[in-house]
Structures are given as structure tokens and as C-alpha cells.
Amino acid sequence: MNRFYLPILTFALLTVVLAVGIRHSPDKGIIVSPLLNKPAPQFALPNLADPAQVVDSRAFKGRWYLLNVWGTWCVECRAEHAMLLKVRASGRVALIGLDWKDNDADAQAWLAQLGNPYEIVAVDRTGRAAIDWGVYGAPETFLVNPAGLVIYKHVGALDEATWSGEILPRLPAAAGPG
């Protein structure tokens, strides 16, 4: 065999791995969160509904919740909103919003107009909390278990396939938002 064929053979191998990766784990592309199975980062941020109140992430400990990072400037967030409302309606898991680098009034208007799927929304004006969570771009969704460990991360708009194929199977059968 000729050494000049080595590069293309290596590349072919890499392509196969990439293709397999794409096919077998469509939701876990290139960026796997380093937070997986690690404690969820803590935050204490103003509450969107009443900025005088604080949303403390430690209060969520002891139950399953989904942390959804969104912003009114984010287009895909609008696309996933209907899905979030469905998640809320299902009552299977609590949905916590992290309003990222956004304007409070816009965010409140957005929820008033499109419906509010969140149990509570924390406002991350500076983006520091999102940095702690390793957020690349909105929307991103994290599943956190009662022990406070990040179990699953989804990048991009949440869809039916992710919800029923990835998130629901990870939830215990009886888990509820309470």
C-alpha cells in the first residue's frame, strides 16, 4: 500500500465515525456537556415575574426539573415554545426558565402573548449563570435529577422526538412536577 493513500483513508474513517455519530445520536452532536452527571451549577437570580424576588437553584433540589435557556431575541425559542407548553401540560416534570441576556419587559410580554410554560423564570441579564451552565446559544435544555445532577442536555429547539425519545425515558414513571 502506498503512503499517499493514508490521508484519504484516515479521512474516510473519520467520515464514517461522524456519519455513525450523526445517525446514532442525533441529539448529542459535537458538544457534549461537560456537566453531564455533575452537579448542576447554582445560581441566585431575580425572578422574572417579580424582580424583587430571588430564584435560588438550591430550592429545586429533591425533584426532577428541566432548565430551559431562552430569550426573546432567540428565534428558535419561539419555535420550541409550543413544545414547552406541551411539556407543561403533560405535568411530568417542572420547567424552569432561564431568561438569558434579555429585556425583562420583552420577556414578560412574550410569556403573556405566547403563554407561560415555566413554573418560574430566573433572569440572567449579564449571562454569567448561562456561562456557568456552558450555554452556547439559546435554546438549550438541561434535565436535572433530584440529587441535583445534570442528566441530559439538549442543544437547540426542544421537539417531540427529544421529549419522548430522550427526556421521558430518563424520568421515573411516577415523577411529577411536585
Binding site: F11, G29, G137, V155, G156
Partner: peptide
């Protein structure tokens, strides 16, 4: 792009095009 590379289900044409394009150019 990262999002689109991830969520092939959401926009399969773009993700597959990226891979095909890279395969054609690099390969």
C-alpha cells in the same frame, strides 16, 4: 451551525449537506 449540526432532525438537509460538502471538498 452547532445547533444545526446537532439537530439533524430539525433540518436534515443542512446537516447532511455539510457532511456531504466536507466529504466532497476534503475527500
Amino acid at each position: 451551525v452547532l445547533v444545526s449540526v446537532h439537530s439533524f432532525a430539525a433540518d436534515p438537509s443542512r446537516g447532511i449537506f455539510i457532511l456531504a460538502f466536507l466529504v466532497l471538498m476534503i475527500g
